[in-house]
Design a protein around this nucleic acid. Sequence first.
DNA 1: CCTACAAAGTGAGTGTCGCTTACATATGTA
DNA 2: TACATATGTAAGCGACACTCACTTTGTAGG
Lengths: 210, 210
Amino acid sequence: MILRAGNGSEIAAAMSNRRPYHHGDLRAQLLETVRALIEEKGPDGFSISEASRRAGVSSAAPYKHFRDKPEIMKAVAIAGMERLADRMEAAAQAKPEASLERLSAIGKAYIDFARAEPGIFRVMFGATIHDEDPDVQRAGRRSYGILLDAVGARLGREPTDPDVLMRAYSLWTLVHGHSFLVIDDNMPSEGARPDEDAFLDQVGRQVMDG
Amino acid sequence: MILRAGNGSEIAAAMSNRRPYHHGDLRAQLLETVRALIEEKGPDGFSISEASRRAGVSSAAPYKHFRDKPEIMKAVAIAGMERLADRMEAAAQAKPEASLERLSAIGKAYIDFARAEPGIFRVMFGATIHDEDPDVQRAGRRSYGILLDAVGARLGREPTDPDVLMRAYSLWTLVHGHSFLVIDDNMPSEGARPDEDAFLDQVGRQVMDG
DNA sequence: CCTACAAAGTGAGTGTCGCTTACATATGTA
DNA sequence: TACATATGTAAGCGACACTCACTTTGTAGG
């Protein structure tokens, strides 16, 4: 959470026991509140009104920081994508550079994120709202770049190599598709789904070595 | 669109130039109208009010046929799943039983559906609403069964065989993930995505033969 | 240090929406 | 033909997204 340098007025207000007229950093708190609300009630279940209430401001206040609701969703989605890329990056760097483990660690980080934050994950990918938005696209491409680099390193080729592209994209769709099937578990019934670790392991090998 | 046998009142009303009090088959027309609206404006962009307006009834009429909005979404999702399964089935039966072509035809049918009807595809999978709903799950499992059978036939084993399960699930996640990446194309930029047919072909082989 | 001005808040109001309630009309069956 | 049931309407409630006129606060320049 990004916070501006405090100006002291909040402290003064707290001491005199009333909230300051100016919030301090409403924009950041709104994003965090909306994120939590989406996780609680789903992407469609949250309202700007409720977020305002939780932040302790009037329902008109958010419009000083965001044009409309879709723009809030977009900001939340982009923040999610950054968080996802961070996790992937951390997972990658914890494993040797050209190892298969690095690849599966990246995949696991992706799936873990989807499981931990299914609401935002859906906002990031399942929503119509920000189709073709350049900001969202750029944020998403960062994650893809991490995977491309790892696959390239594993194969000892440039990330732009067509074969690297093909295998990276295969892995991406696998993990992406699996993540979605996990979070709305309306797909294969209990017994009809293979063990997740075995699945990732085997199919990862098939894609990388095949 | 399913229509009940006409009872003649509509015709009589048309001749006397006024609409009949009873609609005829509002439930079916609502589903179709909502389907079209979702495709036009996205899953969140439609309202019961607007669907009612298009159907020429009051905004309270739909509640004689559906409990609430989520139930309409659910019905639309299930109808979509049936349509998807129909397409997959038709595509499968157009190819020899144990052939690889049958598998890729099933996959293509899936992707074609997502591309042709991205709105309902998202309602079917990307929405929080009908999580864990048994009706939706059952409808979804029909599609999965078609794939399981085809993979089983190809490998000459029972659809319940663990290896069949593993490979079928791999193909499913691949195609599912790819479909999502296609419809919100916020992922790999233009040049960074492999050719779709080549991708499906190669990765299909890797999964089936690896 | 004062004074504009910009930034960030408020409160009231508008139109739409989801949904309910009370009531009206059509249909099928005894 | 009468009545139960299915299916429609009209009016209204509370919540929401968003706007507008206004107020409060922080800050930059004379």
